[in-house]
């Protein structure tokens, strides 16, 4: 297989441009509506005697997680819809380029637009608020650690919804949420049963731990040579490095095997 058939920068840039322009009208309408809502919230908050220091951080969190995850769920709509699937699949770009273009748009692209857009909106809104009310909320500052940690969490959550977007044909967002919910119940149940069986001597009733607080009891726990703190640190590291690449890779393989008989 020639390398050119996997990734070509020129072709990828054309594809990226096409993918962005494909939804530009909807994007602009949503952007306009969101801007109007943000200004309204900002004006109402500034009108209050005690303008908020955290207004834009809260808005950013909501935009990134609610907006970003919904947008991610729709990222492969063109590939699943009967009318558009054929055009998309036959477009002369590789499966990897098609995957990567949508990945860039829904991760770095969405985060960057949100970050820059909100910064500009916050400057404009608070400028207007200062003129009208003579006071303003704190301007959005994208250069804080909190923002970048939040974005890292978004990339991990996004990977799950990206897989859902590639996998499900319809109602991707709701279906992904349902799957997460079911998995969460399963994991919680299995963990609870595991702890109840392995550490049975710590329990008084069916699920009641004797004496002191749960945290103190948990600190006593160990799994052989591995301390619980060590285990938690390992899980934290795994959380940062495993899920996103794993779900993105599965999504890529899903895109490779899409046929038009799957389109509805």
């Amino acid at each position: 297989m020639k390398t050119n058939n996997i990734i070509s920068l020129r072709r990828f840039l054309y594809l990226l441009k096409r993918d962005i322009l494909n939804n530009i009208n909807t994007t602009l309408i949503v952007f306009g509506a969101v801007t109007a809502v943000i200004y309204l919230i900002s004006a109402l908050t500034a009108y209050d005697r005690a303008p908020s220091d955290y207004l834009y951080f809260t808005i950013f969190t909501n935009l990134l997680f609610a907006g970003g995850l919904i947008a991610t769920s729709l990222v492969f709509k063109e590939m699943h819809k009967k009318e558009t699937a054929q055009n998309y699949l036959l477009l002369p770009a590789s499966n990897f380029e098609k995957f990567f273009s949508r990945l860039i748009i829904s991760t770095a692209g969405f985060a960057a637009v949100t970050l820059v857009g909100l910064t500009i909106i916050s400057y404009l809104s608070e400028g207007i608020n200062t003129l009208i009310f003579n006071r303003h909320n704190q301007i959005f500052n994208p250069f804080t650690k909190k923002i970048w940690v939040l974005m890292a969490h978004y990339f991990i959550a996004q990977s799950v919804f990206f897989l859902g977007a590639a996998y499900f044909r319809k109602h991707n967002f709701i279906k992904t949420i349902n799957i997460i919910f079911i998995l969460q119940i399963l994991v919680t149940t299995i963990t609870a049963l595991f702890v109840r069986i392995v550490y049975f001597d710590l329990f008084e009733g069916f699920f009641r731990i004797e004496n002191t607080s749960l945290l103190i009891q948990l600190e006593k726990l160990s799994l052989g040579a591995v301390s619980l703190t060590g285990l938690l640190n390992t899980l934290k590291v795994l959380y940062w490095i495993i899920p996103a690449p794993l779900f993105w890779t599965i999504a890529y393989f899903r895109i490779k095997e899409v046929e038009v008989k799957n389109a509805i």
């Binding site: 020639k2 070509s8 009967k82 009318e83 054929q86 699949l89 036959l90 002369p92 770009a93 590789s94």
Partner: peptide, 19 residues
């Protein structure tokens, strides 16, 4: 669905979508 293959084949379906 290699790009070299796709650019050398054009399929006009009975039902299609134009943007």
């Amino acid at each position: 669905r290699d790009p070299d293959f796709l650019q050398d084949i054009f399929f006009l379906p009975e039902e299609y979508y134009l943007p």
